[in-house]
Design a protein around this nucleic acid. Structure first.
Lengths: 378, 378
DNA sequence: TGCCCCCCTGTAAGCGCTTACACTCGACCC
DNA sequence: GGGTCGAGTGTAAGCGCTTACAGGGGGGCA
């Protein structure tokens, strides 16, 4: 089948009910022009006589021709797509970030590929595969190791690090953690708390580590002894509850099945405040307190991090730190678009400010009558 | 540049710091074999001598060769990717569904493209573009019209409708609405409520329409007069609050700025229960009640729909209907994988069951001491 | 010893598109 | 009137890969 005229006829016979989508060849033949002209009409990057253009457009319309993104990308050497890699999608954190990312990217006419690693061990393979399909990639927190990121860059893929410290020549977009953590811890200290327990895992993510650092700094600044070591917990609610029970109760009854309302024993040296590394942990802590019969904030103060939508509907509303999630995603998108478009060569590193959101769970007086309705995070 | 040997040298000079990624040609040369053999080693679809294989693998490794998804897809005629189109990403609903979808699809080694229409008017263009990059597409509720879906199918793209009635030959995956709405409405009637107001917009989505239908049926079954027309509201919290204020208050003071606790006048003929089309609306209604000084459920009962995570942390916990969101996405993914793999030709239509989640906002007695911790939806 | 066959490998066409380059053809200028 | 120029169009190479087809060669069997 050497003849170009036969190209289409040479395709294997399809058993599908629909005929295959039209190609540029069919459009060209129908319009009586060469495929180059069809391409020019579509791409508008070279002059085409008005009459010719009209004929081509009509052919395109009649054949419902839609150019193959594959052929186009291959010829142009660009994918016209970017990807975002996140650890998980549950909880409002990632979906907000991705939303911001998607909005910006789609507005530029580029497609968005997503990939959740879900702690899978073949995560790097998946990411590598994804990298082969995009011009650039956003990599979030706990997904793949820095070494892998370096490998990606070597693969000629532009990378933006999100909620993660810079590596190599990659851009990075993060939110401020340390200062806010210090402020929040000081706020608790100002309330008179001294035994404050940090619940979270500083080794689990850069963000958590920085929060822990800021937390410690507040103690140093106040001329106090360093705080107790963190009570380790993942970012999940159930784990937060377990951790809170461990640090508050005397541990013998960590199992479920008991009714709430005080039946359990409390540790004598228990903390008077819990500094939770994120809101979900705080949520778990709320549950633990209910179980142990502790009132918030009278018996124990609790703070979170992220200001997830639930936070202001809790009883009492949760004092926390708001991150500009959507903005985070949008910035990452813009950074990626810039470098893939070649508008910038040197990496940029942005740290977005966060905002302390003081509600009632820290002990501040609040109008108890209604939930805090202030400031829709969007 | 006619010589195949020169292929690579003929590329335009790059100003970038990194050399372009290796191609199959370089691997072949380095290993001293033809590109076909390299391909065979990678694809494992034809016998290759062990010695040869080893040499090729070493070359691949040394060059850090990663096959171009573009070239491969073009040659194979498949994208190896699927897409999902959703209206928006805010709120837990869509992110959960997408999570389920992504998990299933990635597990099959396919990539996931996402596209939010955000009510943009060029949505159909974006979807058309997306369709040119995938083998199949999931289309959710309020995104593009049925006519456009038909056009997509003609474009040779497989389509699965999600939370949306079937069209043409497309698969469809939905959740049950009518029966559950009937059950929930009857539950409110059983509590003795007669003036129950439906808040939502039956014309805004198929789901909402079916909930309204079921709602009405409960009245008919109970031998009662049909309920009042719906109080129209979008699925957003702020709109739900506005709607609730309109139907409960006397309307003169719908503006903000007043303190809570009863300063406002109530309608004399106000409903005694609000049947909200989703949880976010219910959330708005909670706010409205706080503002009007109405106690839930004593002064007014409220129900939602979706069982978003917040629901069980509200005070009082919200009675609602749980949808298997993640499962919804996963099923859509499986359906799509089946048809794109050619394993199935005729469309399937699934309706997933929902579950009534009775908490306290409807008036049922609940343990007030702690939030309902039952049943993590995941 | 001769033949067949199967294992392995190379050759080259083809996927659908973009675009450099060549070419044609009037218009226009000196 | 010959030359120049630019607008408009076609030709064909090339993007990176898969795979049908065509050998080549060694082992097994008659």
């Amino acid at each position: 089948m050497p003849n170009a005229e036969n190209r289409r006829a040479a395709r294997p016979v399809r058993t599908t009910r629909r005929r295959p989508p039209a190609t540029i060849y069919e459009v060209a033949r129908k319009a009586g022009v060469s495929i180059a002209t069809v391409s020019r009409v579509q791409r508008r990057n070279a002059p085409v006589a008005e009459a010719t253009r009209a004929r081509v457009l009509r052919a395109i319309d009649e054949l419902r021709y839609q150019p193959s993104a594959l052929g186009r990308s291959l010829a142009m050497g660009r994918h016209g797509a970017t990807g975002i890699v996140f650890p998980d999608l549950s909880g409002p954190y990632y979906s907000e970030v991705i939303l911001g990312f998607e909005e910006q990217t789609a507005a530029e006419g580029k497609s968005v590929l997503i990939l959740g690693t879900h702690g899978r061990d073949q995560a790097t393979d998946l990411v590598r595969d994804l990298a082969a399909r995009v011009d650039g990639l956003v990599v979030m927190g706990r997904t793949i190791p820095d070494a892998e990121v370096a490998a990606l860059e070597e693969q000629h893929v532009h990378v933006v690090m999100l909620a993660r410290p810079p590596t190599g020549g990659a851009d990075s977009i993060r939110t401020e953690n340390r200062q806010s953590a210090r402020d929040l811890a000081r706020h608790l200290l100002d309330h008179g708390h001294r035994r404050i327990c940090f619940i979270g895992d500083p080794s689990s993510s850069p963000d958590a580590a920085e929060r822990w650092t800021g937390f410690c700094e507040a103690f140093a600044e106040a001329g106090l002894e360093p705080p107790a070591a963190p009570t380790v917990s993942s970012f999940r609610e159930t784990d937060g509850r377990r951790a809170a029970l461990a640090v508050l109760g005397d541990g013998e009854a960590a199992t479920d099945g008991d009714t709430a309302g005080g039946g359990k024993k409390l540790r004598a040296d228990r903390p008077t405040a819990l500094f939770c590394a994120n809101d979900e942990i705080a949520l778990g802590a709320y549950g633990a307190c209910a179980e142990l019969g502790l009132r918030i904030p009278d018996d124990i103060a609790i703070t979170g991090w992220d200001d997830i939508p639930i936070a202001r509907y809790l009883t009492p509303p949760l004092t926390t730190v708001r991150q500009p999630l959507r903005e985070l995603g949008a910035r990452a998108a813009r950074a990626l678009l810039e470098i893939t478009a070649g508008e910038r060569n040197s990496p940029i590193h942005q740290v977005l400010p966060t905002e302390l959101v003081v509600r009632a769970s820290c002990g501040c007086e609040r109008d108890e009558g209604k939930p805090d309705r202030g400031g829709d995070p969007n």
